[in-house]
Amino acid sequence: MLDVQHLQKKFGLIEAVRDISFAVTKGEILGVLGPNGAGKSTTMRMITGFLPPTSGTAIIGGYDIVEQPLQAKRLIGYLPENAPLYPEMTVRGFLDFVAGIRGYRGAERRRRVESAIERCRLEKVRHQTIETLSKGYRQRVCFAQAVLHDPQLLVMDEPTDGLDPNQKHVVREMIRSMASEKAILISTHILEEVEAVCTRAIIIADGRIIAEGTPAELKARHPSGRLDEVFRMLTRSAAEQTVVHR
């Protein structure tokens, strides 16, 4: 479903992403794990077509995001970091706009909006303007926007960041409920999230993939059998290596 091929991104002299390749198939939830500044968001922005890659590309359902951006974007649902939304719009108004942009009209448009509201449990706030919502609700509105068109690929950048434990639980439930019929890519710097929802994970540091495997395989890499120890071991050595390089 998603095939990432040698993605690279330079911002001037900073090389944020260096030659990242991986694939996600339908039914999989791939976690992208890494410390802040590792290049997770930059990678996702290239996959979703917001940033053009310096080199490499991503193929979504057979469409190249660089060559055929419109066809590829139709297959993607994207929840950007910090869930950006138009603050002055109502929840319903915003989702109706997204349904229009996704090409739905008339009864189908209304049905899509209603089903997104229902799936993301937004009934209570449907007529409220987005600026009056709590962080948890905002996250869910942005999530609703991402799944409204039933995308084959769902890309989420730190979907549970800044939520309280109950809200995190709700978001994870929603992700799991959709797992079987989609390919899902989630970035996070929270390790428990990988164990809670992902079927497979890659760890990136300093723009490179430094480990890949199921949560169980990754845990086996450290004698303690704990993911946070593995993460620290791997990301620390990656950071030290690049210091030596420079």
Partner: peptide, 9 residues
């Protein structure tokens, strides 16, 4: 929100 807008088709 530009990130949303420009990742829509």
């Amino acid at each position: 929100t530009m990130e949303l807008l420009l990742t829509f088709p």
